[in-house]
């Protein structure tokens, strides 16, 4: 996993609440058996005027110039700004893969859906929950200056822009994994003996699970 330390980038302001993972990456792209290539379908229904699927080259499709992702002012943004309950709905990790493949490394919103939030940490993407008023201030700052640089500093647990800053919370364990880009499966397998001890005990209390 790619480590996350300090990120400085313009922000993409997606002014919507309850953005669900169906909207982030629609169902037809979930048929891919690969992890990469989803960035071109990020927010597909909003981003293109015509329908697409894995067999349609995106170059042949008509972009929706009204949608914020297609606004040249926000090109190259690595920070996504959104409203409450971002990432709700389906557990599809393809949503994070699409964001990450597009270049988004950090999502800032007042709140996140639990599964999406969890999936972010497995892919080097940092979800940052800030109070709604702070997120509103960021939206306004980006509206005033679309190329405004936003800095997200994981070690310091701080978001900085213009002369403002805001602190955010993150679990120490997740923070450490992200800062160091650690492989969680490898970490867990370091505790293989503890898992075996647990299984031996459990086989006595719930033998029907171990026959």
């Amino acid at each position: 996993m790619e480590a996350f330390t300090v990120l400085t980038s313009p922000a993409l302001p997606l002014d919507r609440a309850n953005v669900d993972t169906d909207a982030i990456i629609p169902k037809q792209y979930l048929k891919s058996i690969y992890k990469s290539g989803f960035g071109q379908y990020l927010f597909d229904d909003w981003r293109y005027l015509d329908a697409g699927d894995l067999s349609v080259p995106v170059a042949s499709r008509r972009p929706n110039s009204e949608f914020v992702l297609n606004n040249p002012l926000h090109q190259g943004a690595k920070v996504l700004l959104a409203r409450e309950n971002f990432g709700c709905g389906s557990s599809r990790e393809h949503a994070v893969w699409a964001l990450s493949d597009h270049g988004i490394r950090c999502v800032i919103a007042p709140s996140f859906a639990d599964i999406f939030f969890n999936n972010c940490f497995k892919n080097g993407v940092l979800p940052v929950a800030l109070p709604a008023a702070t997120v509103e201030a960021l939206f306004q700052a980006v509206q005033a200056d679309p190329r405004l640089e936003v800095t997200v500093d994981l070690a310091a647990q701080q978001v900085r822009w213009s002369k403002a800053d805001a602190a955010f919370a993150v679990d120490p364990f997740r923070k450490d994994c992200l800062l160091r880009g650690l492989d969680e499966i490898g970490l867990t397998l370091e505790h293989a003996d503890a898992i075996k001890v647990y299984e031996a005990q459990r086989a006595k209390t719930a033998p029907w699970l171990f026959t």
Binding site: S91, R92, E93, V96, N119, F173, E184, L189, E199
Partner: peptide, 21 residues
């Protein structure tokens, strides 16, 4: 019972465990 992403599918397959808060 809860839903997980694909990284955790791999984690559950490989270790029979998940890291949870």
């Amino acid at each position: 019972a809860f839903g997980i992403g694909t990284s955790e599918v791999e984690h559950a397959l490989a270790t029979q465990c998940l890291l949870q808060k």
